[in-house]
Design a protein around this nucleic acid. Structure first.
Lengths: 151, 151
DNA sequence: CGTTACTCTACCGAGTCTGTAGACATAGAT
DNA sequence: ATCTATGTCTACAGACTCGGTAGAGTAACG
């Protein structure tokens, strides 16, 4: 499981939209600027997220993007799978399960890979955008306390 | 963490050498044939494994490869890191830890990635070639029983 | 009817991955 | 000595992926 630049940008953008969830539409331009993502590149990513129904958009002046569902209902694992493909170190869960049953000499190897995939998905499939933003806030306030106390 | 063809071949070859550990040298050709790996490609992989001191070799007639240490002392995670790079979904463990501390807006995201990496390495860093071959044997005998009982 | 946004498609350069080719070095058998 | 079977080393080629850019097109709204 490898997170590409695309995947990272997608998660940052969604996280941004989650923060703005109650405030309506956000323009690509604003996300790109705040998150330091090349605007035209982000554009493509948002289209993919739209096709996968994570977000909706409106055109024209005062247009922009917003989450289609509340942050607590968007799972990080689903986003990663969409952008970067399966989580498993080799193939996807279905292919791995198949090879565990059929691989003539090394079924145990694929079984090991399946364990790894399950461990990874156990984490990211139980983390939502809401969790992510809570985590961000906690880490940032902890950091702020640390800086203050060191002054 | 993605396993490349190279990584898969490396693990299969080492697993093969682990099986033959008590029997001395094995030729590239024999490994390639048994494991269905392109011979010249396997050659390169074995050189890498040799430079990383997982295996040793002897040249000439009756030459070949063998594990440098017993199968129980060779850790799958080390092999994967050598061939396919770091296990983390983004960067390596050191980089992740750094970004958790410095990322201005999304430290929690990298913290999440670090959790995933730790879960993956917990598994593959506690699996040796010996474990792997035991797993293979168990899976294969279980499969054999199943076939027999279904006749 | 013009401006501001999103939409769609094409493309490009750099890098990576899988695999092939071939010349070379060395150990052992005859 | 020399032949032969083996490992060693370097180069490279074709396909693919990734990150990013470009530009024309379309919808909403004032």
């Amino acid at each position: 499981m490898k997170i590409s630049r695309r995947g990272l940008y997608a998660l940052k953008a969604l996280s941004h939209l989650a923060d703005a969830y109650t405030q309506g539409l956000v323009k690509i331009h604003d996300i790109a600027e705040a998150e330091e993502i090349p605007e035209k590149f982000l554009e493509q990513i948002l289209v993919a997220l739209k096709n996968a129904r994570f977000v909706t958009s409106e055109r024209g002046r005062e247009g922009g993007y917003r989450l289609r569902r509340p942050p607590a209902e968007i799972v990080v694992g689903d986003v990663i799978r969409l952008i970067d493909g399966p989580l498993a170190p080799f193939g996807d869960a279905v292919e791995l399960a198949h090879r565990v049953r059929t691989e003539p000499r090394h079924p145990g190897l694929f079984d090991l890979f399946l364990d790894v995939r399950n461990a990874a998905s156990a984490i990211i499939d139980h983390t939502t955008l809401q969790d992510l933003n809570q985590r961000n806030r906690r880490a940032l306030t902890a950091r702020a306390r640390k800086i203050k106390s060191s002054v």
